[in-house]
Write a protein that binds this DNA or RNA. Structure first.
Lengths: 152, 152
DNA sequence: ATATTTGTTGATAATTATTATCAATTAGCA
DNA sequence: TGCTAATTGATAATAATTATCAACAAATAT
């Protein structure tokens, strides 16, 4: 397995350790790969990111590892309409813009909106439910597929 | 194909027609089946709902038809974290509570919250995006899997 | 009404996505 | 170091989805 520079990995190794996970090369490589992305990859994409530098890594390991990382809160599973498992490297609470015509999922976070919604739910009574997070999901079509999207 | 009573189907037939879709027995049966549900089924579930009364219907037809109905706005695709295509019979804007430990997706709608969010986005500048709907998604674990959930 | 056209369906093969299996390997620890 | 239990890689099995295409049925023209 290809060794990445110690100073880059130690932070990730620490995160694994703190989550009670064994620190393996595969986990480090996969965790690093997904954390480097700014999007919401599916399993195959992470596999392709790493397979050249780590040719012996197994696709099954990528499947299992991403699921393990999500279970331990180092990454998140993200809801998608395309019927494929997708993961989110950002664990902080944030919303998504789901482009229905492309398969893009774009992060969206607004402090004011967040406060508004949390204030709203603070007043609510919730039964039989342990809320993990609340997010605003925007479904939309991207008009020009080559141009970027913004909300400001 | 089993014929359903005319007075029950005419409304659905009309909906198909207005969407520019040919009115076929299969589409009527599938549309009726999903509209009768209060949850967010995946394809196989709809197939099982109808196969007894319609033994010659093909699973592939159910796949294609649900996708067609969603494309034409008669039902919706719903984002899920379980990596499977799921559909929503309710097309009106509403939010979801995603139970991460069970696979349930529970509808959630609050008029006041809805107004709050739409008011918020009315003030925003949105570029390169045609917003279809905005929904609040709550991720949670159901504490007692057999008991119902409430937010009030 | 009947024929024609065009889109839809059913059966099933092909493909893609995901999970299971299990022997070999490796991390963490005595 | 050596032991133990968890992880990994290779691959088989399964599940989910899509593609293919001849037969069929709905809408439209005749």
């Amino acid at each position: 397995m290809t060794e990445a520079p110690k100073h880059q990995l130690s932070q990730l190794a620490l995160q694994l350790q703190e989550s009670g996970l064994k620190v393996t090369q595969q986990r480090l490589v996969i965790l690093q790969a997904i954390k480097e992305r700014a999007d919401h990859p599916w399993v195959e994409q992470i596999y392709e990111d790493i397979v050249a530098a780590n040719p012996t890594i197994s696709l099954a390991t990528v499947y299992k590892t991403l699921e393990t990382l999500a279970e331990h809160g180092l990454i998140k599973r993200v809801a998608s309409t395309d019927g494929q498992k997708r993961y989110d490297p950002k664990v902080e609470n944030h919303g998504h813009i789901n482009c229905l015509n492309t398969r893009e999922i774009i992060d969206y976070y607004d402090q004011e909106l967040h406060a508004l919604i949390y204030e709203f739910f603070k007043k609510k009574k919730v039964g039989n439910l342990k809320i993990k997070n609340i997010s605003v999901e925007i479904n939309a079509d991207k008009i020009d597929q080559d141009r970027a999207v913004y909300i400001k």
